[in-house]
Structures are given as C-alpha cells and as structure tokens.
Design a protein around this nucleic acid. Structure first.
Lengths: 162, 162
DNA sequence: TTTAATCCGGATGTTATATGTCCGCAATAG
DNA sequence: CTATTGCGGACATATAACATCCGGATTAAA
C-alpha cells in the first residue's frame, strides 16, 4: 500500500507554483532543481499532471508549467488522481463468487460487505484530500517562512523566470 | 497505490471464521478452498495474520486457525495492519530539506504541510476501517444469506471440522 | 530564418515489490 | 509412530515503480 513518490514530488512542485503570481510558471527542469530531484523523472510526472488538467504546459523557449487554475481550486486529490489514477487501492476480485459453497440462489448484484467497507474508507480518505487546496498548503508554508527563505527563493526565481 | 490481494483473501477468511462458534477454527487449506484460492499463498497470509495477533494458530493434526478474540473486537484495520504493515502509504522523503533555496534558518522539526495533510487523510481512512468489525461484516452477510447458502456451508463445515 | 529552449510520447532499461511455490522443521492428535 | 498442520526461510516469477533517453513538435528570441 505505497503511494508513488511522484505524488510527493509533484505536490511540492505545485506548492511552489501556487506561490507564484497567477499565470506564471516554471520549466520542469527548474521544478526538479528546486528540490534536487531527477530532472527527467520530474518531467515525466509533470506531463502526467498536465494530462490530468492540474497544470497547463507552455511549449517552446520561455515555456514551462503553470497551474491550470487558482491554487484554491486545486486539491491534493487532484494531484493524486493525475499521478496515481482514480482506481481504488482495494481491488475486489469477487472471490465470494468462487468456491464449493456458492449456490445458484446467491445474489451478487450488490458489492460484498468487505468491498463496501473498504470503499467507504477510501472515500473518507479522498474526501480529506479534496478538502485541502494548494492555497491552504501555500499559506501555511508562507506563515512559517523566514525572511532569509523568502529572499533565497526570490533570487532563485529571478534567475529562473528571466 | 494498490493494496495487497492478501488483504482481500484474509478478510474473507476472517469473515468465515467469525461465523463459526467461538474458539472453533479451520486449517489454512480449508480457508483457501472455501474461496478457491491458492492454498500455499493463503497459508502464507494466514501466518502473517497470526503474527499480527488477529488469529491464533493451533499446530498439529486437527489444528488450524481461529480468531484470536471475538469478531466484535477485530476490525478490518487489524487485518490490513497484519498483512500490509503499519507504514503509511504516503512516505515523506523530506525533499523540502534539499535544493538551492534551503537556508540555515529553515526549521524542519515539524512535519511539512503536505506530509501533515496526507497523514490526516490516512488517519481518516484508518479510523473508518477501525470502525468496522468482523462481527459487523458477518451479521450483514448473514442477513442476506439464503437457506440454500446456509445449508451448503453447513455441509462443507461438517466435513472440514470433523 | 536559424537557434536554443521546452514539452510530448514512446522505447527502453533497472530495481523493487507482489505473487506464488516448495521444503525441512517443529508440534500435536490419534 | 504416523499423518496432519503451522512456521519460517529459500526460491522463482510476474508486475509495477523508478529512471533515462531520444526524436519530433512548438515557440521565443537572436
């Protein structure tokens, strides 16, 4: 039950993008560099985010990725969905339909109780992720940031955006 | 983000055990047979359940597995924990501590916001699983069961328990 | 118009995890 | 004793995760 590392990478990348002025973006290389991550793999993940509609890509020189909408309208679930897909973690293979005690009267139209319980638990998980936006993350991070940190980021952005 | 098939297998096996009289169990072979599952692999999973304290094993002829306590006191989370382990699905590798904009003033004592959000979501998931007991599952299954089904299981149990 | 930057999608390779089997050992009932 | 059963480890295979690279398309700027 492990989540892909790509979720962590892209969540942090999106948190950075959310701190930028509206409509401003960064190339995948810069997003990787900001956290010292493998550039080629980060590029792969950003493509998935773009396919998922979380970010928009701008091709060509001076291009890169920017948030597809306001950080307040992008949740952590949007990112998970783009990277991991929408399939539930619990896969029901309907083993209740197999075995020596299955009878013709058995009714398999409704999901089995175990499937239903795991489904509900997963919905609770998703609901929590949907309730947290990039804006929430960015504002909490900003509140704890130091002047030194802000300055360092400003200098680095200056170089990457020009 | 896939959960092991073993969770499904053992959850169904435990639901069967929960329907048995208190203290009565079944060998791993029978538990596998009941859902037409690979006996060797089911045996592996049952060992994990025993290590996790969900079931008790009885060695030797006439032995097998039985619930370690009342079905009302065993939750789906207990099973997940025994099979999958207690590690959270979201693994924070602290990438915030890497990169060109990290300053000596940065404070990394508290978990980062992304880590915290995923942690809370996962706690919500676990809380739901902890709220569902094997007794809950068994009673719901029993309510939907047909006389034919009950008869088929009774016959099969007769053979396996003797 | 050329050049450099950048994203896109596919091919490919490597590593880790999940799945599945088997065996020898220990325990136990009959 | 012998048959049954769980235990743990070794082993094999399949699937997924991780990671890189390349050719093609697009675009800003020299």
């Amino acid at each position: 039950m492990k989540m892909s590392e790509g979720v962590e990478w892209t969540a942090h990348a999106c948190a950075l993008l959310a701190a930028l002025p509206l409509g401003v973006g960064l190339p995948a290389n810069a997003l990787a560099e900001f956290h010292s991550l493998a550039p080629a793999y980060m590029a792969k993940h950003m493509q998935a985010l773009a396919r998922g509609g979380v970010v928009e890509s701008v091709r060509g020189a001076g291009g890169g990725y920017r948030l597809a909408r306001s950080g307040a309208d992008i949740s952590l679930w949007d990112i998970v969905e783009a990277i991991e897909g929408e399939e539930p973690a619990f896969r029901c293979s309907e083993i209740r339909q197999q075995g020596p005690c299955v009878t013709p009267q058995d009714d398999f139209r409704r999901p089995c109780e175990i499937h239903a319980a795991f489904g509900k638990a997963e919905m609770a998980w998703r609901a929590h992720l949907k309730s947290v936006s990039l804006a929430d993350i960015a504002s909490k991070v900003a509140r704890k940031s130091t002047p030194q940190k802000r300055a360092a980021i400003a200098v680095w952005l200056q170089e990457k955006l020009s």
